[in-house]
Design a protein around this nucleic acid. Structure first.
Lengths: 342, 342
DNA sequence: TGTGGTCATGGAATCGATTCCATGGAATCG
DNA sequence: CGATTCCATGGAATCGATTCCATGACCACA
């Protein structure tokens, strides 16, 4: 499998390696004759430049890294898709890493991305600003945070303002007569986990609803913790009549348990989930959600990263969120007597 | 952002670059003293080796490429996750590419992966054996096909035997009294599209059910074509009473339309989907599926690729599929008179 | 016709790490 | 105790492409 190098191309074209390189990189200081001969040789030999050698010399790798907490989360799968397509159209390939919501794996992948000298990194970070996140900043590697941020790390970011959507949700549920609203929170090690919890607590307080701390369960954004959270909330002496889940996977986990218990969403328990996933509308009844645009988020993150790579300092962007009311949260609250007990 | 190189490490440790390199790569020909000093210098400087330079010299990049048709398809998201985790535990990073079910984008990504000199490639291919797939083979780049194959290209593969699951499905539906079973097929440009269609046709014939060609709609494995397929089938003079969708996304598209029309799965139309997605069980009624193990597929593909990289020629593996009966296909067929008309 | 300028080109240095080869000191054996 | 082996080490070549610099051809203008 003797690799074909630029020297082979140059030899076949009857020029020097330097000239061949110039033709290939579109340097104008080339003759039409040289261009034709090199182009022919490239096709003849099916030559593919060695990206490693090129990157070594030119200090550009034409690749970016994208680090998400979990590709199996449809929100991040969509994000990966938009980022990758947007980057591709700008001539960058995307290296995708999966942190599995674990700081250790996040650090491992960040190290790898640093080693491969990607031109920039888009990351939905977790944890504090320690570990490899710090290395990133110290090396001044172009970085953009997406969906989440890290306290004390000053990096441009694209995030969602969850307060509006959450406030709309609480007000909507309060208007239906709910006074005890359960909340399955994300981990407090993430900015989204903290922000959404704070928004929930503030909205509940402002609406004059129960602030019973037992109504809040702290999960980890993965499905199993949604199941555990629902169990915990149903076992309360005075369980909630409505529930807000801080992401789609925890909502899925909660719904699975409701099914198992023979409880119906919308009737036995009003339910709203953060993140709009296509098939949430296919459930029966359809799931109310707090929606925010993953396409905008991905596209803006790529634009922003290109700005940083170009040496600029773009402003952070905060995208809106909005309640979409569907069947799972449209019935007025039932009198307590007619509710089933767990 | 002056990069720290192995020379800086060597200088600080008071050894030569050669010795530093040996320590870093675990070469046994090093003294304990040198090891300690280099290790200290690495930490002191927060040194990260330049992966390009290393790969250039050693012709190994410790990375593999994974090319899937669409990350937003939960099946491939899961596959990406297992492949990436399995590869990581073997010391490889995964570069993920998205072909968007388009041959042109597939070729573009394959070219990129070749240029980056990945150590091997796992691909769920589409199209015939032309374009960059051929370059892959000619360059003898270690390659493994996953989920799909390409006719005439002899590469180890991990695929699913769809015939068993599809035959079980047809027999099951026939036993419930269905005689006209609709089929939303995948594209015939993919091996899975062809295989599943052939299995469907054979099973229907063997069971003595209607072989009306109008009962088959050819989609493209994406959601919109499932919607279009359902529309087409419902508009038939004599519409099917049961439906099999060849992948999950097309099933989602079909279900969305059923909802919009106010039809219920399981009652108005029996439905079975290929691919088991976690939340299919959360629908009401739960969706019957033909299940196959994406974890096994991903893990085996990685093992197989490592074999190929090591110079061996592993046998292709065919995994089983199996019908999982749930509510969407458990009622006996209704008399035609009581069925709603579209 | 001579000088200045433009331009395509090739030679050689370079990027950062690995690895072959030679060296010198210590350990081992007869 | 001398000869041989072993072993850690540094110098230098190397991987494949890019890019600085020098060169020579050619054109134009005075």
């Amino acid at each position: 499998m003797a690799d074909i190098t630029i020297k082979d191309v140059a030899a076949l074209a009857g020029v020097s390696a330097a000239t061949a390189s110039r033709v290939l990189s579109g340097n104008p200081a080339t003759s039409a004759q040289a261009r034709d001969k090199v182009a022919a040789a490239v096709i003849e030999l099916d030559y593919r430049p060695n990206a490693q050698a090129r990157a070594l010399r030119s200090t550009r790798s034409d690749s970016i890294g994208l680090l998400v907490p979990d590709v199996r989360n449809p929100f991040f799968a969509d994000l990966a898709h938009t980022v990758e397509q947007a980057a591709l159209s700008e001539g960058y390939v995307t290296l995708l890493g999966n942190a599995n919501e674990q700081k250790e794996q996040q650090d491992r992948y960040l190290d790898t991305l640093i080693s491969r000298r990607v031109d920039g990194i888009i990351v939905a970070p977790l944890g504090d600003g320690g570990g490899s996140i710090r290395s990133l900043i110290e090396r001044e590697i172009p970085t953009v945070f997406v969906d989440r941020t890290v306290d004390g790390i000053d990096v441009p970011s694209v995030t969602t303002d969850s307060t509006v959507g959450i406030r709309q949700t609480i007000d909507h549920l309060a208007a239906l007569g709910h006074t005890r609203i359960g909340y399955i929170s994300g981990p407090q090690a993430t900015s989204t986990g903290r922000d959404r919890f704070a928004a929930f607590a503030a909205a509940v307080a402002d609406a004059g609803l129960s602030q019973d701390p037992d109504l809040v369960y702290f999960g980890d954004f993965q499905a199993a913790s949604g199941s555990a959270g629902l169990h915990a909330l149903l076992e309360l002496h005075d369980p909630p009549t409505a529930l807000l889940a801080a992401d789609s996977l925890m909502a899925v986990g909660a719904i699975a348990i409701l099914h198992k218990l023979g409880l119906r969403i919308g009737t036995d328990l009003a339910l709203v989930a953060f993140d709009d996933i296509e098939w949430f509308a296919l459930l029966d009844p359809a799931l109310s959600v707090i929606s925010h645009s993953v396409e905008d988020m991905g596209r803006i993150a790529v634009d922003m990263l290109l700005e940083v790579i170009a040496g600029n300092s773009p402003q952070s962007v905060v995208l809106p969120s909005e309640l979409v009311i569907r069947g799972s949260s449209s019935l007025p609250i039932l009198p307590a007597s007619s509710r089933r007990k767990n």
